[in-house]
Design a binder for these strands. Structure first.
Ligand SMILES: [Mn+2]
Ligand SMILES: [Mn+2]
Ligand SMILES: [Zn+2]
Ligand SMILES: [Zn+2]
Lengths: 126, 126
DNA sequence: AAATTAATGCAATTGGGTTGCAATTACAAA
DNA sequence: TTTGTAATTGCAACCCAATTGCATTAATTT
């Protein structure tokens, strides 16, 4: 079970994801709200928002955890299975609205995929 | 620059990768050789072996760092760009000798990919 | 064999993330 | 509105992978 009470801290975190459709690392999020709440609270709120299907998490290239807004997910069904893109110049991370075909692997059962493309984003490419 | 001197510790670590063609987490490697060398030494040897193109690293689903033997890589050219597979039952990780097609992304330049397939391995499938 | 310096051991430290518990606060029931 | 309750938060301590500084050891060169 995720968010039950709409606290100020929850609203603050949610607004960050509403404002701009861009993934954020937990480390960055903690920095952003460090005057408003404790880091433990940030971790717990992110956990609950993910359980509710409001945001989804994945690992960046450095192994840090990142979160981004979900599109059409719910507590019962997380449908975000897209790849992510991380820029080596500016470190920005984007959700990629595309599907990558995974060939079936003999004698293996693939339940989920974790795909990170690394390179240069639109801004840094130019 | 990677390995310069062939020490006993280097030989020990290398042999682990020669023996069996299977990826190993750093945590597991440290455990395997804990009577023979310090954990710092393990980290440093892995760094140097990777620089030399003898092994390559990637992140497992839990965020831990894993290493596996390289095939045809050298210090100047790391050609290992394959996906990896991690079993949710037994935690084993394999290098997958297959290529996954990445569609080109508008205004982005993709330099490398980090693909982890998660599911059940051959043994755990049966 | 002696000199050089890469490699190692060890203790301390860093940093992301978690846990236990007391204090606070949202919210529903009265 | 007031009260009761349990969800939420703050805080300090902790966990653990990974890194760092530095003195010591050992591989390789001369
Ligand atoms: Mn996403
Ligand atoms: Mn591999
Ligand atoms: Zn960029
Ligand atoms: Zn398995």
């Amino acid at each position: 079970m995720g968010i039950i009470r709409k606290t100020k801290a929850v609203a603050t975190v949610l607004q960050i994801f509403e404002e701009k459709d861009e993934a954020k690392s937990v480390v960055h999020l903690i920095e952003l709200v460090k005057d408003k709440m404790n880091k433990t609270t940030v971790y717990r709120i992110l956990d609950r928002l993910e359980q509710d299907g409001a945001i989804h998490s994945f690992n960046g290239k450095d192994g840090l955890k990142w979160y981004a807004k979900c599109e059409g997910c719910s507590a019962s069904h997380h449908s975000d299975k897209h790849p992510h893109f991380q820029c080596t110049k500016c470190d920005k991370v984007e959700c990629l609205p595309l599907e990558i075909k995974i060939p079936s692997i003999k004698n293996h059962k693939v339940d989920s995929t974790d795909i990170l493309l690394i390179g240069q984003c639109e801004v840094c490419c130019a």
